[in-house]
Design a binder for these strands. Structure first.
Lengths: 252, 252
DNA sequence: CTAAAACCTCACGTTACGTGAGGTGCAATA
DNA sequence: TATTGCACCTCACGTAACGTGAGGTTTTAG
C-alpha cells in the first residue's frame, strides 16, 4: 500500500467517485479487504492509485458473485491480477446477456400462452419462476469450482510438491497411529499443524474451500494419493487425523 | 386462494419445482406474501394453481428489484396482474441487456488502456468501479417512482375523485383550525381518519409511499390542490394536520 | 476566527433468508 | 400390521453486508 499522499483521496471523496458509501469503505477496511494506503495524523483514511486498482479488482470479483471473504482470499493470489479479473468479468457479462435473452424469450412465450385459449399450465409457471428466481449474478457450484481450479492450475509444480508432502504426512500419521500415539500429543499435533499449513496454502485460507478439499481428499484424492504410494487407507486414519486437528484447534 | 386440492403441491414439491427453498416458502407464508390455498388436517401446506400464478407475479416483481414488502403491497392492487408484471419484467430484461453491453464495452476499453503505454488513470478506474458496483437489478429512484406512477395512472378517474376529496378535507381542516378546534378533538380526528384512509387507498398501505406522498402534498401537490380551488395554504395548516394524525395514531 | 462539513470509532438494527432442534405425520416395505 | 425413513410442522438463533445514528475530533471555506 502506498502511492503519493498528495494525490490520495479521503474516504468521502472515494465514496463519491465510486458511488459507494463511506460505511462500505469502512467495512472493507475493517475486514481487511481494502486497507487505506495511509492515515493522516488525525486518523483520516487516504486512498491512492494502488488502492483504487485493488478496489476495481474487488468490484469485478464482486460482480462475479463472490462474497467479500472470497474476494479477499482471491486477492491473496497473484493470478487474480487486475487484467485477469477484468477478463473474467467480461466473460461473465457475456454469459449474462445470453441468459437474459433466453429468459426474455421464455417470458414472451409464457405471455403468448397466457393470451391463448389453452392458458398456462402449472409447469409453465414453475419453470419460469425457477429461471426468474434463480437468475442471480452468482456462478453455479460447478462454475465456482471452475473458477477456483483455474487459479489452482497455475501452480502446477507446487501442487505436485504439495501432494508429495501430503503423502508424507499421511505416512507419518499412519505411523503415529500404529505406534499408539495419542492424537492430542505434541507429536501428532505437529503433524496437524503441518497439514493445516498445507491446506491454508492451497486454499488461500478459505475455510469453505478447505472444507470441501477435506471432503475431496477423504473420498477420492486422499485415496488416490495413498494408492499412488502403494498405501491403503487404514481404518480410522481419517478419524485420527480429525482428532489431531480438533486438538490443534483447541489450542488456538 | 383455492384450486383443486387433489392437484395441489406440498411445500417440498413446490420448492423443488421452482428452485426455491422450503424455508423461503415458509417465510413468504409468514409475512403474508404467499399463503397456501389449503392446509391438510395435519397442517401441511397445499399450493394450487392460483398460488403458483401469484408466485410468478412475486418472482417477476422481485426481479424488478422490489423488496418483499413492496411486492406484497403491489399485489394488493389490480393493476399488477400476471400479464402486466410479465410485461414489466421483459422491459427490465431488455434494459439490463443494453446496460450490460455498455459495461462490457467500458471494460474492454479499460483493458486496452491497461495494455497501453499510458496505462489507466484513477478516473478510468473509479468510473468503471462505479458502474460495476452499482450495476444492480434495482431501479433508480426515478424509475421506482415511474413504476408507482404507472400503477397510479390506471385509476385516473378515481384519482380525480380522491383529489376532490382531498380538497374537501383541506377545507374542513382549515375550518376546524379557524374555529379553534383542538387537533386531538374527535371532530378533527375524524378528518385525520378520513385522510389516513385516502392515503391507504392511494398507496396500497405502503408507508414509504405514504411518507413521500406526504412530502409531495406538503411541498407541491398540496399547494396545487389548494390553488386549484382558490385557496391559499394557511400558516400552520400542515402542522395542524400533523397533530391530528399523531393524535389518531396515539389511539391505535 | 467561526461555523459547517468531513472525518473518527462504536454499536444497534435491517432484510431475506440459512440452519438446526424437537416433534408429528405420511408412505413404502417387510 | 409394524417399522422405518422421509416429509412436514413450529420455533428460534445466526448470517452477510452493510444502514443508521450517537458522540466526539479535525478540516475546510467564508
Amino acid at each position: 500500500m502506498g502511492g503519493s499522499v498528495d494525490t490520495a483521496m479521503k474516504v468521502g471523496a472515494l465514496a463519491k467517485r465510486t458511488g459507494l458509501t463511506v460505511r462500505t469503505l469502512h467495512h472493507y477496511d475493517e475486514i481487511g479487504l481494502l486497507t487505506p494506503g495511509h492515515r493522516t495524523t488525525a486518523g483520516h483514511r487516504l486512498y491512492g492509485e494502488p488502492e483504487v486498482r485493488r478496489l476495481q479488482q474487488i468490484a469485478s470479483l464482486r460482480s462475479l458473485g463472490l462474497s467479500l471473504e472470497e474476494v479477499r482470499d482471491c486477492l491473496r493470489r497473484p493470478m487474480y491480477s487486475l487484467d485477469r479479473v477484468l477478463e473474467l468479468q467480461i466473460e461473465r457479462i457475456q454469459e449474462q446477456i445470453d441468459r437474459q435473452e433466453q429468459l426474455r424469450d421464455l417470458i414472451h412465450r409464457l405471455r403468448d400462452r397466457l393470451h391463448s385459449a389453452e392458458g398456462v399450465s402449472v409447469d409453465d409457471l414453475t419453470r419460469t419462476i425457477e429461471v426468474t428466481m434463480n437468475f442471480e449474478k452468482y456462478y453455479s457450484p460447478e462454475q465456482m469450482d471452475q473458477l477456483r481450479q483455474r487459479g489452482e492450475t497455475v501452480g502446477e509444480e507446487r501442487i505436485q510438491k504439495v501432494q508429495e508432502e501430503w503423502s508424507e504426512l499421511f505416512a507419518a500419521y499412519g505411523k503415529a497411529m500404529d505406534d499408539g500415539l495419542d492424537p492430542t500429543s505434541d507429536t501428532v499435533k505437529a503433524l496437524a499443524r503441518k497439514s493445516a499449513a498445507l491446506i491454508t496454502e492451497f486454499t488461500g485460507g478459505d475455510p469453505g474451500i478447505a472444507s470441501s478439499l477435506g471432503n475431496m481428499y477423504r473420498s477420492e484424492g486422499g485415496a488416490n494419493v495413498m494408492a499412488n504410494h502403494g498405501l491403503q487407507s487404514p481404518p480410522g486414519l481419517w478419524e485420527y487425523m480429525g482428532k489431531a486437528s480438533a486438538a490443534l484447534r483447541s489450542d488456538s
